[in-house]
Simulated assay, not measured.
Amino acid sequence: MQDSRLPPFHAALLHPRYALNWLGLCLLWLLVTLLPWRAQMALGRGLGRLSMKVLKSRVKVARRNLELALPELTLAEREHLLRGNFESVGCALFETGMAWFWPDWRMRALTRMEGTEQVDAAAAKSQGMLLLSAHFLTLELNARQFGLYRPGVGVYRPNTNPVLEYAQVHGRCRSNKYLVDRLDIKGMLKALRAGDALWYAPDHDYGSHASVFVPFFAVDKAATITGTATLARVKNTVTLPCFTLRERDGYRLVVQPPLAGFPTGDDEADAITGNRVLEAAIRQAPEQYMWLHRRFKTTPEGVPYRY
Results as ranks from 00 to 15, higher is better:
Asp3Val: 00
Ser4Cys: 01
Leu6Gly: 10
Phe9Cys: 06
His10Asn: 14
Leu13Gly: 08
Leu14Asp: 09
Pro16Cys: 03
Pro16Ser: 06
Asn21Ser: 15
Leu23His: 07
Leu23Gly: 15
Leu23Val: 11
Leu28Cys: 08
Leu28His: 12
Leu35Pro: 08
Ala39Thr: 15
Met41Glu: 12
Ala42Thr: 13
Gly44Glu: 11
Arg49Lys: 09
Arg63Phe: 02
Arg78Trp: 05
Arg83Cys: 08
Ala99His: 10
Met107Ser: 10
Thr111Gly: 02
Arg112Phe: 01
Arg112Tyr: 04
Ala124Gly: 05
Met129Ser: 04
Leu132Ile: 07
Leu139Trp: 14
Glu140Ile: 05
Asn142Gly: 03
Arg144His: 12
Phe146Cys: 02
Pro151Tyr: 11
Gly154Asn: 14
Asn159His: 15
Cys173Ala: 06
Asn176Ser: 04
Asp181Arg: 01
Leu189Gln: 11
Trp199Ala: 04
Ser211Leu: 05
Phe213Tyr: 15
Ile225Trp: 02
Thr230Phe: 13
Arg233Val: 00
Lys235Asn: 10
Asn236Tyr: 08
Leu245Pro: 01
Tyr251Phe: 15
Leu253Ser: 07
Leu253Cys: 08
Leu253Gln: 14
Ala260Tyr: 02
Asn275His: 09
Glu279Gln: 12
Gln288Lys: 09
His293Gln: 14
Thr299Lys: 14
Tyr305Lys: 15
Arg306Asn: 08
